[in-house]
């Protein structure tokens, strides 16, 4: 609750506008694809960040990430719907609805129990997917070419550029909405819940209900992120979208980013993708070593994530 002017919204607007323009003009396709992957993941991380502010870590958000991806894929495969104006909201909505149902259980647990329970739910989903032939089993399946307001890109580059621009807009809008939410009373019940649930209850509001709302929000965001990833990859499969390492990766990026701002997940996610890409290029057999060492450095020296470097530079107190 810093008394200084809040530059987050102008920063997001200018930042994403610049990324959209400069990215379209100068980014090579491989770097643009990397950014698309990063921003898709960042949407899910944004939701995890909100939970983390409450002191809750979910090791199972790949459930919603994968669910969003499979909703897009199945809408195309079974219903012939490839319009992103339909598939993306449907993915977010269905993920949010599943999150709403599971949230009735999740909201009652904290700390390691919350983390492990979320993992358990995601592994159930993974198990269902790998055992269901109609859903492509372990191989997954390809998804329909997406259409954008009735228009279908003719080649891969056109598709990539369109997805990139659309994603920049979605990320801007979602980050602005989440930022606005975090400024509300309900949004501010993050640190309050983490610090003292008894006081929250005795101020007249249910901590469990507040956690539930945040959980649904994070599920919808993860679903949207997964849907974007599926559209850009043109393929869904359980291992790269629902399995537990995907959940771990989302938590990794959340820690790397830090909970200080809605901008952080986008920076952290791009950074993670770059570290992983270059680590894989330099030491293909031991790239995990570099990624793991990065996490250690973050935990030891930057517990507030990479965002804490930025907040220190601009002299802003971490407002959680």
């Amino acid at each position: 609750m810093d008394m200084k002017r809040d530059w987050t919204l102008p920063g997001l607007t200018v930042g994403f506008a610049l990324i959209a323009v400069v990215g379209t003009l100068v980014l090579p396709d491989w770097l643009m694809a990397l950014t698309v992957n990063s921003f898709s993941r960042a949407l899910a991380v944004l939701g995890l960040m909100v939970l983390w502010r409450c002191g809750l870590v979910s090791f199972g958000h790949a459930l919603y990430y994968g669910l969003g991806a499979y909703v897009v894929a199945l809408l195309g495969k079974d219903w012939g719907i490839s319009e992103v104006l339909i598939t993306l909201p449907a993915a977010a909505l269905l993920s949010g609805l599943v999150g709403f149902g599971i949230g009735f259980i999740m909201r009652r647990y904290r700390e390691i129990f919350f983390a492990m329970l979320s993992l358990a739910f995601s592994m159930v989903m993974y198990g269902i997917l790998v055992k269901t032939e109609a859903l492509g089993s372990t191989d997954g399946f390809s998804i329909e070419q997406p259409s954008f307001m009735g228009w279908t890109p003719e080649d891969a580059t056109e598709k990539l550029h369109t997805i990139f621009l659309m994603l920049c807009f979605i990320c801007w809008a979602v980050a602005a909405l989440v930022h606005r939410y975090l400024q509300s009373t309900l949004g501010n019940l993050t640190r309050a819940i983490r610090d003292n649930e008894i006081r929250v209850e005795y101020l007249g509001i249910s901590a469990q209900h507040a956690v539930h709302i945040k959980y649904v929000m994070s599920a919808a965001l993860a679903g949207l992120g997964g849907a974007m990833l599926a559209i850009s990859l043109g393929q869904v499969d359980p291992d790269s979208m629902v399995n537990w390492p995907v959940s771990g990766e989302l938590v990794f990026v959340t820690i790397l980013s830090g909970p200080g701002s809605v901008v952080a997940p986008f920076i952290g996610s791009v950074l993670f993708e770059l570290i992983r890409t270059y680590a894989f290029e330099w030491v293909p057999g031991a790239w995990q070593l570099i990624v793991g060492a990065t996490l250690l450095v973050i935990i030891f020296f930057l517990p507030g994530g990479v965002w804490s470097l930025i907040s220190r530079a601009i002299g802003k107190r971490e407002d959680l």
Binding site: M1, S184, R191, A192
Partner: peptide, 30 residues
Amino acid sequence: VFMTATVFENLMIALGIAESKTLFDGLRRM
């Protein structure tokens, strides 16, 4: 109290909750 928040922030959160009679009230800027 909320140990990691300032005294002013503690009161702002308390006031925000007190003035949030509905879900939509809770979404107002604190």
